[in-house]
Simulated assay, not measured.
Amino acid sequence: MYLRLLGTATSQGVPVIGCHCAACDSPDPRDKRQRTSAVLCAGEARLNIDAGPDFRHQMLDAGIERLDAILLTHEHNDHTAGIDDVRPFCFMQQMDMPVYCLDRVARELRERFAYAFTNYPGVPKLDVRTVNFGDRIEFGGRPVELLRVNHGKLPILGFRVGGLAYLTDVKTLPPETLARLADLDTLVISCLNHHGTHSHLSLEETLAYVDQLRPRRAVLFHLSHRLGPHAEFSASLPPGVEVGYDGMQLPV
């Protein structure tokens, strides 16, 4: 089993429209970042994490022609706006696409994508399955444990499978989540920029969590262009901490 990072940028992507900073003008392909998403792969099975506005391109870029389910971490547009593009999978696989999400997110989906819950021909068919923090879903014969992450005041989903944890849009981690993050091989954790916001970690705050949790490997993602070009940012980080990039594969 492995996790492939499909997108590693924050909500604007990198390059940002109209920006000519060093990261946005960088020729390094690692500085071409789509909106944050990932796919968990086990044999031929695929569990996609989020479905943002770059979902279609991410599926094509990664050569994904089969999808078994989607896990939505939360309802924000950069994590859900591409949900309509599950249609080809529904058509090819002749199935309603299982979508795991919090009850609050399920209500939002039914409101924003109301047409997907009708019998109108050609709409994406979604099999919404509500979950909660602490639940486990089976994938590839292994449990995926759902964890609470605080995105500012908004509780959202992260997960742990085996020795890998995936935590996007973090501002704080509650004690019950920290208790589930011991002895990690790989911590994939968001890092917005140098200063953070009311709902996102700064670089200093992210590194403090890495130091507290002591994973064998930490990979930063959900990155703003303000962190600078990939190579320069990577060189500034302590040992054991890496900068994620689109297409990066991490063993589970």
Score class of each variant (00 low, 15 high):
residue 181 L to Q: 01
residue 233 F to N: 07
residue 148 R to A: 08
residue 103 D to H: 13
residue 251 P to M: 15
residue 223 L to C: 08
residue 133 F to L: 08
residue 239 P to D: 13
residue 36 T to D: 12
residue 241 V to Q: 01
residue 27 P to H: 07
residue 119 N to R: 15
residue 172 T to Q: 13
residue 239 P to R: 12
residue 87 R to L: 15
residue 208 A to K: 11
residue 17 I to N: 14
residue 83 I to V: 09
residue 106 A to R: 11
residue 127 D to S: 10
residue 225 H to P: 10
residue 59 M to Q: 10
residue 213 L to M: 10
residue 58 Q to N: 11
residue 21 C to V: 09
residue 40 L to R: 01
residue 173 L to N: 05
residue 89 F to D: 01
residue 244 G to K: 00
residue 88 P to W: 08
residue 96 D to V: 02
residue 53 P to M: 08
residue 162 G to M: 09
residue 239 P to W: 07
residue 128 V to E: 02
residue 100 Y to M: 07
residue 169 D to F: 04
residue 214 R to D: 11
residue 156 I to C: 05
residue 245 Y to T: 07
residue 52 G to T: 01
residue 39 V to Q: 01
residue 147 L to V: 04
residue 140 G to K: 05
residue 175 P to M: 03
residue 77 N to G: 12
residue 124 P to F: 05
residue 45 A to L: 13
residue 179 A to S: 14
residue 163 G to L: 06
residue 66 R to M: 08
residue 129 R to E: 08
residue 71 L to H: 04
residue 81 A to C: 04
residue 86 V to W: 03
residue 41 C to M: 15
residue 243 V to T: 07
residue 248 M to I: 11
residue 116 A to I: 01
residue 38 A to Y: 02
residue 158 G to D: 00
residue 94 Q to C: 12
residue 54 D to L: 05
residue 161 V to G: 05
residue 2 Y to P: 05
residue 230 H to E: 09
residue 111 E to W: 13
residue 149 V to E: 04
residue 137 I to H: 04
residue 104 R to I: 09
residue 209 Y to R: 03
residue 64 I to L: 14
residue 149 V to Q: 01
residue 204 E to A: 15
residue 141 G to Y: 12
residue 211 D to S: 14
residue 47 L to R: 03
residue 125 K to Y: 10
residue 116 A to V: 06
residue 92 M to G: 12
residue 5 L to W: 03
residue 209 Y to A: 04
residue 166 Y to S: 03
residue 3 L to Y: 03
residue 89 F to W: 06
residue 40 L to A: 03
residue 188 V to F: 00
residue 248 M to R: 09
residue 160 R to Y: 04
residue 24 C to L: 14
residue 218 A to M: 11
residue 223 L to Y: 06
residue 196 G to L: 07
residue 218 A to G: 05
residue 223 L to F: 09
residue 235 A to P: 08
residue 128 V to P: 02
residue 6 L to F: 12
residue 189 I to F: 04
residue 169 D to H: 04
residue 30 R to S: 10
residue 92 M to E: 14
residue 146 L to K: 00
residue 146 L to M: 02
residue 237 L to A: 10
residue 116 A to G: 08
residue 123 V to L: 11
residue 75 E to C: 07
residue 108 E to I: 07
residue 148 R to H: 13
residue 171 K to Q: 09
residue 219 V to K: 00
residue 119 N to L: 13
residue 139 F to C: 12
residue 174 P to G: 14
residue 177 T to E: 06
residue 249 Q to P: 04
residue 143 P to A: 09
residue 54 D to S: 12
residue 18 G to V: 08
residue 188 V to M: 02
residue 145 E to Y: 12
residue 210 V to E: 00
residue 170 V to D: 00
residue 26 S to K: 08
residue 11 S to N: 13
residue 17 I to H: 12
residue 203 L to G: 04
residue 215 P to F: 01
residue 114 A to E: 09
residue 67 L to Y: 02
residue 190 S to F: 00
residue 194 H to M: 10
residue 202 S to C: 09
residue 26 S to V: 08
residue 49 I to K: 02
residue 208 A to C: 11
residue 83 I to G: 01
residue 130 T to C: 12
residue 197 T to W: 06
residue 188 V to L: 06
residue 68 D to V: 06
residue 85 D to A: 11
residue 5 L to P: 00
residue 116 A to K: 03
residue 54 D to M: 07
residue 182 A to R: 14
residue 101 C to P: 02
residue 168 T to W: 03
